[in-house]
């Protein structure tokens, strides 16, 4: 028996068929999670209201011409947690969500990240948002998936909740910390003449991929290749440089 065969054998031989989980607790917690998903879906439009800092907003619904099933993989707020979104959610809420959720319409063109989830394309796009008392905030950046039929599923949305969404510099960074099978690569946007954006993690530098927003060329959408930066892994730092290499 070689090492690999021995490994396979050992992994199977050490199974404990008597492992028992508390299924009553599983059912109870599962029902709670399901309820939270419904609430989060219905309330995501106003989730940002009243929070004093940056949030990653729980994803809202699907949009698109074909009426695709409702939304998928969502992430919890990074900070400023709303009680509606206290837990990481994953994958598609029940079909009953379809009538409750919003359908964020992309502003400008979709940015194709080049990342694929099966046949779906990972795309980024801005959508309109409204934050009470914050007239300077009107857009948020969404991470979604576009199916071959063109339908769009929004997974995450990040937006500023204070000040201006067009102020120079970095804005929110979206970390997908859900348990989704198709996690969104880390993403965000920068306002200014950046031609290079570099993240640092564990002492390692990772270059982001960039695309300018079709509706405002000062806005640079960026994302990190999931092969270089695991979705959800926090950056230790991030900088932007212009065409001459000057730090912005």
């Amino acid at each position: 028996m070689n090492e690999l065969e021995r490994l396979r054998h050992a992994m199977r031989a050490t199974e404990r068929p008597d492992a028992v989980l508390d299924l009553d607790t599983v059912l109870r917690e599962g029902r709670r999670l399901r309820t939270r998903r419904r609430v989060a879906g219905a309330g995501a439009a106003t989730l940002a209201a009243g929070l004093a800092t940056v949030v990653v907003v729980v994803a809202v619904g699907a949009s698109g011409p074909t009426g695709r099933p409702p939304p998928a993989a969502v992430a919890p707020p990074a900070v400023g947690v709303s009680p509606m979104a206290e837990e990481s959610l994953d994958l598609t809420p029940p079909p009953t969500m379809a009538g409750d959720v919003l359908s964020p319409k992309p502003l400008g063109q979709l940015v194709d990240s080049g990342v694929r989830h099966g046949v779906d394309r990972r795309v980024y796009y801005f959508v309109g948002v409204s934050v009470p008392g914050e007239p300077g905030v009107s857009i948020g950046l969404a991470a979604g998936r576009q199916a071959p039929d063109g339908s769009l599923t929004t997974d995450m949305l990040v937006n500023t909740v204070e000040g201006s969404d067009r102020s120079a510099g970095f804005h929110e960074i979206g970390y997908d910390e859900s348990s989704s099978a198709a996690p969104a690569p880390t993403f965000g946007y920068f306002v200014g003449p950046a031609t290079r954006i570099i993240g640092t993690v564990d002492g390692r530098q990772v270059d982001a991929r960039l695309a300018r927003w079709s509706s405002d060329k000062q806005v640079v959408i960026f994302w990190f290749d999931p092969g270089q930066l695991t979705p959800g892994e926090r950056l230790d730092g991030i900088i932007a440089r212009d065409g001459s290499g000057r730090r912005l």
Partner: peptide, 15 residues
């Protein structure tokens, strides 16, 4: 971890 996985699976069970 297994319990968490089952909770999330049950939450999406209808689908």
């Amino acid at each position: 971890a297994a319990q968490t996985a089952l909770v999330r699976t049950y939450a999406s069970w209808s689908r």
